[in-house]
């Protein structure tokens, strides 16, 4: 347990991060944690260890266990409408689904006849469409790569897989390092951050799944270690984005409310617990938990979820 170190910037931050909050270390002995996602039916957190090449599961009762090894150096995880894990397969350079029987189903591998760069983070829309970011790092970072490290596309973009799984379309192609992505609570907006440009852009969602009107929403101008990477939204539409020093809490107008400081570089985070008020933070070797006052957006296969 750490007393939580925060950087409260604007009023409203205390309403989200209670003064008595602590940072709890729930899983250690990993190499590079990423992709946290809460499975409400199981009361468990799934996450990846990219360099360790594993998918892992943590629950309060059972602690951390390996679910899959090797796992193609996986990165972001989410759940589809049936509660199955959908994986941004970074090193494997595919998007795939982990079935209940432990087998893997590949959902997408190529666009325009060329292998993806390295799918990084991934979300599922309420209609079943899958969106993911496709930066370079799974090709270029030693320790995170699979058998083929050649990058084929001349851009780094955001892709969408249609709800029927039949069509991969390129949604945006003008990023340097697209990384975390999330919808606003009503799914009218798509937020995507860019690690290399250290900012978040927001786009207007169109009925056909495309986006328009991209504009810079937030810039991380702090000097401390850390970059925009994982990103999630709470039920009020506040955006939680990794960045310098830890997790930045940004209101829907793009105003920084404050920062949750974390002692290791944060790669991603996700809400969990029965009340969706636990923020699970993956930071290199460790997964941390901090309890917040406003719940995140529920997801998965249970009634009332999106």
């Amino acid at each position: 347990m750490y007393a939580l170190d925060v950087d409260a910037v604007a009023s409203g931050f205390e309403r989200i991060v209670p003064p008595n909050a602590v940072l709890e270390r729930i899983s250690s002995d990993n190499i590079f944690t990423e992709g946290p996602v809460w499975n409400k039916a199981e009361g468990a957190l799934y996450f990846t260890d990219i360099i360790g090449n594993k998918i892992k599961r943590w629950s309060p009762a059972e602690g951390t266990h390996v679910v899959m090894d090797p796992a193609g150096h996986p990165d972001g995880l989410t759940l589809d409408r049936e509660g199955r894990l959908v994986v941004a397969g970074w090193g494997a350079r595919t998007v795939w689904r982990l079935e209940p029987d432990g087998s893997a189903t590949v959902l997408a591998t190529h666009f325009d006849g060329k292998k993806f760069n390295s799918p990084n983070d991934i979300i599922v829309q309420s209609d079943g469409a899958v969106y993911w970011t496709d930066p370079n790092g799974g090709c270029y970072n030693p320790g995170m790569c699979d058998q083929d490290v050649q990058k084929y596309h001349d851009f780094q973009g955001v892709y969408r897989l249609s709800p029927d799984g039949a069509t991969v379309s390129l949604v945006v192609d003008d990023f340097e390092g697209p990384n975390g992505l999330c919808f606003s609570p009503d799914e009218s907006l798509l937020y995507v951050n860019d690690t290399l440009r250290r900012h978040i852009r927001v786009f207007d969602m169109q009925p056909d799944g495309s986006v328009t009107n991209g504009r810079v929403f937030y810039e991380d101008k702090f000097p401390e270690r850390g970059v925009p990477d994982g990103m999630k939204v709470d039920v009020e539409g506040n955006i939680y984005c990794t960045g310098s020093a830890g997790v930045h809490v940004i209101d829907p107008a793009g105003r920084l409310l404050g920062r949750i400081k974390v002692p290791e570089s944060v790669a991603n985070h996700a809400w969990g617990d029965a009340d969706w008020r636990g923020l699970y933070i993956t930071a290199r070797t460790t997964v941390y938990l901090v309890r917040l006052s406003i719940p995140g957006i529920p997801h998965g296969s249970w009634p009332g979820a999106r």
Binding site: Y140, P142, C145, Q147, D148, V149, Q150, Y152
Partner: peptide
């Protein structure tokens, strides 16, 4: 020599590139 990826790679005739081992005693 892929300098910024800190490894030797092999350019395969099919256009792919295979990374060679990059760890010496567990270090990059």
């Amino acid at each position: 020599c892929q300098q910024f990826s800190r490894r030797i790679i092999r350019f395969n005739p099919d256009g792919s590139s295979a990374p060679m081992p990059y760890l010496l005693d567990g270090q990059y």
